[in-house]
Amino acid sequence: MADKKTVFITGGAGFIGLHVVPMLLEQDYKVRIFDNMFRGDRDKVAALAATGDVELIDQDVRYGGAVHQAMKGASHVIHLAAVSINKSQSDPYESMDINMIGNHNVFAAAADHGVERLVFASSASVYGDPEKLPMHEDDTLSPLTPYCISKRAGEDLLGYYQRRANLSWIALRFFNVYGPGQKTTAYYTSVINHFVNRLRNGEAPVIDGKGEQSMDFIHVHDIARSVVLALTSEKANVPVNVGTGIDTSIADLARILIDAVGSDVEPIFNPRDVLVSRRAADIQRAKDVLGFESTIAVRDGMTDLIRNGG
């Protein structure tokens, strides 16, 4: 079929990308994955490529010429490639290189090629420590790490190319993504893994403070749905929160995981002063702009993850 539209997806071989690509194929797009394969899953990409509608370009977003060349003929762009939040603090130079320069290379090429829509994976971390819940897209932004700063700057760069070249974009501010296939390096996934490993050894999870810190855990399947919806939404040129709107405390998470593992232990609370941060998305704009609502409840998603081995 010559009339299939092509989606160019950076980081398409990563955790979120590998959930997005099959949904794009279901929507009858051709897919061009652009990924340096540093953390990408070659076996999964090879299986997708066997469909005939997926190709892999093994390259790095830091090279603007490579990005520009590879994007030729694409009608839509999804930019997921980034260095993680933890890595950005241990190596700010690489973080700036990949996240800032990479953002700009992808956005500039998309503007040059006149793509129909660019979807950018931003992050709820652009808010910093929120002053109130739920966190709304128009709240003050206070990004705290090089990663978060690069996500906010990415949104600003999109605004620049919208004004300069009429680029149509949506920045999705992902909250705490979890699900099958996730690497275990993110802070909150390491919390999940720590709890689960102890539970599987018959030990109780240990929680610092009272376990009041909370996150808005959103399943990667829902994240992928939001990305695909953002490609064709009528409204554009805005940041959009992607979360459940529910803040799940660490104490609640421990109890969900205890139930999922089928253990009868009680969490151990380690009394110490903990900076209590809470997270919950205002989800109204996602409904209005994307027609999106999350479908997988935290208890269901976490239980499924534990019972099916993640």
Rank of each mutant, 00 (worst) to 15 (best):
I9W: 00
T10H: 05
G11F: 03
G14D: 02
G17F: 00
L18N: 00
H19E: 15
H19G: 02
V21T: 10
P22H: 04
L24K: 07
L24A: 13
L24P: 04
L24S: 12
L24T: 11
L24E: 05
L25C: 07
E26N: 09
D28T: 06
D28G: 03
Y29L: 00
V31F: 00
F34I: 00
F34E: 01
D35F: 03
D35C: 01
N36I: 05
N36F: 04
M37E: 04
F38N: 02
R39W: 10
R39H: 11
R39F: 14
G40D: 04
D41I: 08
D41T: 12
D43M: 03
D43H: 06
K44L: 13
K44I: 09
K44C: 05
K44E: 14
V45I: 11
V45P: 08
A46C: 02
A47H: 09
A47T: 13
L48A: 01
L48C: 07
L48Q: 07
L48R: 12
A49K: 11
A49T: 10
A50T: 06
T51C: 09
T51H: 09
G52Q: 07
G52P: 06
G52C: 12
D53S: 06
D53K: 08
E55G: 06
E55Q: 13
L56Q: 08
L56A: 05
I57H: 15
D58F: 14
Q59E: 15
D60E: 07
V61A: 11
V61I: 15
R62P: 00
G64W: 01
G64E: 10
G64M: 06
G65A: 13
A66Y: 03
V67M: 04
H68K: 12
Q69V: 04
Q69K: 13
A70W: 09
K72R: 15
G73C: 07
S75L: 03
S75I: 02
H76N: 08
V77G: 03
I78Y: 08
I78V: 15
H79F: 05
A81I: 03
A82I: 00
I85W: 08
N86L: 12
K87E: 15
S88H: 01
S90H: 02
D91L: 07
D91F: 04
Y93H: 11
Y93P: 00
S95V: 12
I98M: 13
I98R: 03
N99V: 02
M100S: 10
I101M: 06
G102I: 08
N103T: 14
H104E: 08
H104K: 14
N105T: 12
F107Y: 14
A108P: 01
A108E: 13
A109S: 14
A109F: 05
A110H: 01
A110E: 03
A111T: 14
D112P: 01
D112R: 14
V115F: 13
E116N: 03
R117L: 14
V119K: 14
V119P: 10
V119T: 14
A121S: 13
A124K: 06
A124H: 07
S125H: 10
V126H: 01
V126G: 03
V126C: 04
Y127S: 15
Y127D: 11
Y127I: 05
K132M: 12
P134M: 09
M135G: 06
M135Y: 02
M135Q: 15
H136I: 08
E137F: 13
E137R: 07
T140L: 13
L141F: 11
L141K: 13
L141Y: 08
L141G: 08
